[in-house]
Simulated scan of single mutants.
Amino acid sequence: MHDNQPQDVAPDALPDVITRYLNAHRTHDTASAISAFHPDATVIDEGKTHQGSSAIETWLTRSATEYTYTIELTGAQEVDAQHYITTQHLEGNFPGGVVDLHYRFALSCGLIEELLIEP
């Protein structure tokens, strides 16, 4: 747990690796998105854990093809130098049609070590 209170930051103040991932994810560029992750990174989305490059690549590919949706970055926060939270607004043909999700990033060695996606 972090005692630090998240501080709002401008989206362009996010670390490059997070911006690269978010842009690649928005354009369904799986190769660029996967390059932002540490080889043994963990992604937790919809309560499921995806560990390692091949599992994350499968998750990215599935999420890009399962539904059609738009993603808009609506907020960014810095917890500390290695932990960031972004808020993404999604609209599309998934159940509910509209959702705001928090992407909680943990960085290590300039790459994403962990990504937790939750409402």
Rank of each mutant, 00 (worst) to 15 (best):
W59A: 08
E57T: 13
T86A: 05
H102N: 15
H83Q: 05
E72I: 07
L73N: 12
F37I: 00
I71C: 06
P6F: 05
I117Q: 02
H38D: 03
Q51R: 11
N93A: 08
D29N: 14
Q7I: 13
Y69A: 12
Y69N: 09
E72C: 05
N23M: 03
L14K: 03
C109D: 12
H28F: 11
E91C: 06
A31K: 08
P15V: 02
Y103T: 02
L90N: 09
F105G: 01
P11F: 02
I117M: 09
I112A: 05
L60V: 03
L101F: 10
P39C: 03
T65I: 08
D12E: 05
L101K: 11
R20D: 06
T65G: 12
E46P: 00
A106W: 04
P119F: 09
D3M: 11
G97P: 04
S53C: 00
L22I: 00
K48L: 10
A10R: 10
S35I: 02
E72P: 00
K48T: 15
V17S: 06
V98M: 07
T49A: 12
N93W: 04
L116A: 14
G97F: 13
I18F: 04
E66C: 04
I18D: 09
E91D: 00
T86H: 01
I44M: 05
G75N: 13
T61S: 06
R20V: 05
M1D: 12
F94Q: 08
A55H: 04
A41M: 00
I71N: 14
Q5M: 08
C109Q: 15
E91W: 00
R26I: 04
I34P: 01
S35V: 07
